[in-house]
Design a protein around this nucleic acid. Structure first.
Length: 254
DNA sequence: AACGGGTCCAACCGCCGTGGA
DNA sequence: GTCCACGGCGGTTGGACCCGT
């Protein structure tokens, strides 16, 4: 017996959404939020399954969705991040406010993939796994050392950075997005300004100006961190990020 | 105008991770 | 520890649209 369907499909409408359905969904979410997608269609009076409602909202109806053609900068960002991250559309989308993973996935398959294939040089083709979506995982870009006394040291992107600083920078940015999203709400993440400093991320909270929060990038000494996160939390977070994303290639017990 | 092939993109499907009971 | 519900994600599909013949 197969897995039970995500929702009772009998009697539910499928296919393209009508204008009226869109309006019902928008109004309901504006009034009540979307804490429970499964229950939402029933409460809102929509003959759709919760998943369909969530998809419609996140990919089309959300007020912060940016419509229209991708800019050249956005396309370059997608190409660069895809080269590093593979088909992790949600992570790539996090670097492009207003763009959805679905949209990025579509633009990749319809435009960018062809362009990248056409622009490939013989030198690129000599690199191993160049065309493999997951080749990023073949490269140990980060390491975590756990010393015998319990002290840990996350060496962020310490490898492969002599020959490609740009790529390393992009990897850092991808990690930082995850990092900040873990700390901030979605609104804070997109509204607040943040900069990558030499040893830390500086976040300028626009709602509590001129407060700044410093978050160390690596396992270096934390001297001026005003965040509520303590060292252990930060180290745990980075370890979890690396473990989860598969980037952690080494755990050295010294 | 009609047809057929190619392209685009919204929507669906199924799997996975997570958190609560 | 196990089960289940749920949200999120990436892969895929199908229909609308475009364009050349």
């Amino acid at each position: 017996m197969g897995r039970a369907p995500c929702c009772e499909k009998v009697g539910l409408k499928r296919g393209p959404w009508s204008f009226e359905e869109d309006q019902i969904l928008i109004k309901f979410i504006q009034l009540n939020g979307h804490s429970n997608w499964r229950a939402l269609p029933k409460k809102a009076g929509l003959l759709r399954c919760g998943k369909s409602c969530r998809l419609r909202w996140t990919n089309y109806l959300r007020p912060d969705i940016k419509r229209g053609d991708f800019t050249h900068e956005e396309e370059e960002t997608i190409i660069n991040l895809h080269q590093l991250l593979g088909n992790r559309w949600a992570t790539i989308a996090a670097r492009l406010p207003g763009r959805t993973d679905n949209e990025i996935k579509n633009v990749w398959h319809t435009h960018l993939k062809k362009r990248v294939n056409q622009n490939e040089t013989p030198r690129d083709q000599t690199k191993p796994n160049q065309n493999d979506d997951n080749h990023f995982h073949d490269q140990p870009l980060c390491s975590l050392e756990i010393k015998s006394d319990g002290e840990e040291n996350v060496d962020c992107c310490s490898k492969n950075n002599d020959d490609n600083d740009k790529n390393v920078r992009l990897v850092e940015l991808a990690f930082i997005d995850d990092f900040l999203k873990n700390l901030l709400s979605e609104e804070e993440f997109f509204e607040n300004e943040w900069n990558l400093e030499k040893d830390c991320i500086m976040i300028k909270d626009i709602n509590q100006s001129p407060k700044k929060v410093e978050i160390p990038l690596c396992g270096e000494e934390i001297s001026s961190c005003s965040s509520s996160e303590n060292t252990d939390d930060i180290m745990d977070f980075w370890r979890n990020v690396f473990m989860r994303d598969g980037e952690l290639q080494e755990i050295n017990i010294i």
